[in-house]
């Protein structure tokens, strides 16, 4: 693009008001040379532009660097023959190939994260709605603070709590579930006497991801335009009907994003799973039995200290799988949000 208007000489700018033409530098007037062609950015505006662009580029660079690292380091395991892997990697002795090893881990990871999400999302939405639309103002801010505090607890503490307090505590409940609802395949099998099973992990992960989902949902719900809430109320909606007509549809994409943030954390959670779960390498939906599942992150942490070079490469290959899962989850979440974009209220 080139400038289409030649700069007006100083002092004879026809666009400026007469009293300012002489007293101000001509480039301050609206039709002065600065705005004649492509706008020239200066000072803070330029700094900001490059900072923002830089930050945006940085995230791509980091993402690419992680992906490259994972692929390069996993390459030996990806290219090695199955026999070679099984012979040289001690923790793969029960697997026949890399896929055979990674598969159950992917399954366990997704199962634990989905359990956590299923348990956490309804509770988080309920808490967020209570804070945003039901609670008296003072209680609301206090409660919001407490929920945020849950996010500040380190995951190793959750692991300790889960293994030492929650697991014995919920074990009788799991036994009861197993004896009364055992005909549902999920609750079948021998109920673990220790309570250190994937359902307990799901509960702990749910508690861990609750704050982020609640906080984001609460913010989204508070953004519902007053205009539409009043429209619903004026039609004779009760408070719950008003929430169903306006708050929830408006917050839909935000809640999906919040859930995805939570899911991301649940997928990658290491310590809590490692400390609670009695591990196994099966494609098993038995939520109450011991020794059935294991997650990728916890498995990496467990095997990492004693892994040989090839073993390390196998572990990084499982990490690559986790990376891909997370990407797929996020992209499908975007797709869900985008599908009803016309009706999102953003236009």
């Amino acid at each position: 693009m080139t400038a289409t208007t030649s700069p007006a000489p100083a002092g004879t700018d026809p666009g400026g008001p007469p009293e300012s033409a002489g007293s101000r530098p001509p480039r301050r007037s609206l039709r002065g040379p600065r705005r004649a062609g492509r706008p020239v950015e200066r000072g803070a505006s330029r700094v900001f532009r490059w900072t923002a662009t830089g930050a945006g580029a940085l995230i791509l660079v980091v993402l690419a660097a992680v992906a490259v690292f994972l692929v390069v380091k996993a390459m030996p395991a990806l290219t090695a023959s199955s026999g070679e892997l099984v012979d040289s990697v001690s923790f793969m002795r029960n697997s026949s190939s890399l896929a055979d090893y990674v598969g159950p881990l992917v399954f366990g990871t997704v199962l634990a994260a989905v359990l956590a999400l299923v348990l956490a999302v309804p509770v988080a939405i309920a808490i967020a709605l209570f804070i945003s639309h039901y609670a008296p103002r003072r209680l609301a801010s206090g409660l919001g603070y407490v929920v945020d505090l849950l996010a500040a607890v380190p995951s190793v503490v959750y692991g300790l709590w889960g293994a030492m307090v929650l697991a014995p505590l919920v074990q009788p409940l799991w036994s009861w579930l197993g004896s009364t609802l055992g005909w549902i395949p999920l609750f079948g099998g021998t109920v673990s006497p220790t309570g250190r099973v994937i359902l307990t992990v799901g509960v702990v992960l749910a508690v861990m991801i609750l704050p982020i989902i609640t906080a984001v949902s609460r913010e989204v719900f508070l953004q519902t335009p007053r205009l539409y809430e009043e429209a619903a109320l004026a039609l004779g909606a009760t408070r719950w009907e008003m929430i169903r007509m306006t708050v929830l549809p408006f917050g839909r994409s935000g809640v999906v994003s919040a859930a995805m943030l939570g899911l991301g954390r649940a997928l990658g959670e290491t310590m809590a799973v490692l400390m609670i779960l009695s591990q196994g390498f099966l494609y098993s939906f038995l939520l109450l039995a011991a020794g059935q599942q294991q997650t990728i992150a916890a498995n990496i942490a467990a095997q990492f200290p004693e892994a040989s070079d090839m073993g390390m490469s196998v572990l990084i290959a499982t990490g690559l799988a986790l990376f891909v899962i997370t990407l797929v989850v996020n992209m499908s979440a975007r797709a869900i949000v985008a599908r009803r974009k016309d009706f999102s209220g953003a236009n």
């Binding site: 004026a234 007509m245 549809p249 999102s344």
Partner: peptide, 14 residues
């Protein structure tokens, strides 16, 4: 019934 100052049809509905 009430009609408001700014038009407010529910954007999430047809």
């Amino acid at each position: 019934g009430m009609v408001f100052q700014r038009p407010n049809p529910f954007p999430t509905m047809s």
